[in-house]
């Protein structure tokens, strides 16, 4: 049924974003610039991977999907539907922070919209996740504000990283050419175009407070492709590392 196929597609996109972003967050464990940030990124990694697991479980239980662990760790790269934004290496802290700010607000918007979804498992999960995400966006906002007001060099670096990350972040909202209409018509969610607009409206006042300039949206070419299984060269090495232990023995019981 195309309705189930459309739902499956949407859930895989959301879950893969959470899983890969969670993995990237976990790479700060032990390396954070200050201890609180080490703890924060590690905690957010745990949250993200937990949310990915909850989504994979919906696939498994409601849509005849595979076992969540096998699905997460035992898939070829082309079957992943994560956005290019989450695939990018952490690089310096400024990029990680800006990605966290842009990504978590996008997620918050998405889960808030799912509170009214026609798909019951989304309604149940979104109530839980949207509350937890409050702490992610609170954390991101506080650091965006602090670093943008921490002197000339700091401000310039924040503006630069915002300019360089917007196209990647806009790629989160890549709609499926096959399924978007069904999902919107069936009121599963409001659709990527609506979420994109709500996201811009949400981040704009925070950036203004931080005196950062949102790049002109019309000049941006969103980094699409991830949702169709076309990825950056950074995903494959991440998948290999992430599944290293699991793939030693896929039948082992942990």
């Amino acid at each position: 049924m195309s309705y189930n196929a459309a739902l499956t597609d949407l859930i895989i996109k959301m879950a893969d974003d959470e899983l890969i972003q969670g993995h990237r967050n976990s790479e700060w464990t032990g390396l954070g610039p200050v201890m609180e940030e080490d703890i924060a990124f590690s905690s957010m990694a745990q949250d993200k991977i937990g949310h990915a697991w909850a989504l994979y479980r919906i696939l498994h239980e409601n849509l005849e999907g595979k076992d969540p662990d096998k699905f997460a760790f035992h898939r070829p790269e082309k079957d992943f539907k994560c956005s290019h934004l989450v695939e990018m290496p952490n690089e310096e802290y400024g990029f990680s922070l800006m990605r966290h700010f842009l990504f978590d607000h996008a997620e918050a918007i998405r889960y808030e919209s799912l509170v009214d979804s026609s798909f019951e498992p989304f309604r149940m999960l979104s109530k839980k996740v949207k509350g937890e995400l409050k702490y992610h966006t609170l954390h991101a906002n506080a650091w965006i504000m602090q670093l943008s007001q921490a002197g000339e060099e700091s401000y310039q670096r924040m503006q630069e990283v915002l300019n360089n990350t917007m196209a990647l972040a806009a790629g989160i909202f890549e709609a499926s050419p096959e399924y978007e209409n069904i999902l919107v018509t069936e009121k599963v969610y409001p659709g990527e175009a609506a979420l994109y607009q709500r996201w811009l409206d949400r981040i704009y006042p925070i950036l203004v407070k931080a005196s950062l300039n949102l790049p002109d949206i019309k000049t941006i070419t969103p980094a699409y492709g991830g949702r169709q299984g076309i990825h950056t060269p950074y995903l494959q090495p991440l998948l290999k590392e992430m599944g290293e232990v699991f793939n030693l023995d896929t039948e082992a019981s942990w």
Partner: peptide, 13 residues
């Protein structure tokens, strides 16, 4: 508030 994340998911510092 020093950080909204602490030693476990349910705690802030």
């Amino acid at each position: 508030l020093r950080s909204p994340f602490g030693s476990t998911l349910c705690r802030a510092i």
